[in-house]
């Protein structure tokens, strides 16, 4: 397996530490951690990691806004959400913002590994995501 440089974004120090240990045991390299959305954007510019794991609920800027900002500036960025939010609408918001995967906490190593591998080898079909969002919006309105 070729090395993948990863940045972990999470406001919880215990999750940053746990994910670092887990990812390094799997064989990835954690090159940066960030505790807020704004920190993540600045760190992405300087580090240009191969992949980002992104929490949603964070101080100063949430993970969906940070994802949108990073993808806006770096369209090829690969971001996988790692969050406790289980709402379908939140998942769709994240994918719409450009996330390439979504893992719900508490995470298991094989689930994180699969999400990272998928994100690294293929992109989400944004047209398909948009169609799902529109379909759900129409259902809600009718």
């Amino acid at each position: 397996m070729s090395t993948v440089d990863i940045m972990i974004v999470d406001d919880s120090p215990i999750i940053r530490q746990k994910l670092t240990v887990m990812l390094e045991q799997i064989g990835y390299r954690v090159v940066q951690t960030a505790a807020t959305g704004k920190e993540a954007i600045a760190a992405y510019r300087s580090q240009r990691p191969d992949l980002v794991t992104m929490d949603i609920t964070m101080p100063d800027m949430n993970g969906i806004e940070a994802t949108r900002a990073i993808i806006g500036e770096f369209p090829d960025a690969k971001i996988v959400m790692v969050t406790s939010h289980g709402q379908e609408k939140m998942v769709l918001e994240a994918l719409k913002a450009g996330a390439k995967g979504y893992v719900i906490k508490p995470f298991q190593p094989h689930v994180v590994y699969e999400a990272i591998q998928k994100a690294c080898r293929r992109t989400v079909d944004q047209a398909k995501v948009q169609a799902i969002i529109e379909q759900r919006t129409n259902t809600t309105e009718s």
Binding site: I14, S84, H85, G86, M90, K105
Partner: peptide, 11 residues
């Protein structure tokens, strides 16, 4: 983190 996870699932 425990509370965040529980309430995240509740949403």
């Amino acid at each position: 983190e425990a509370v965040n996870t529980i309430l995240g699932h509740c949403t």
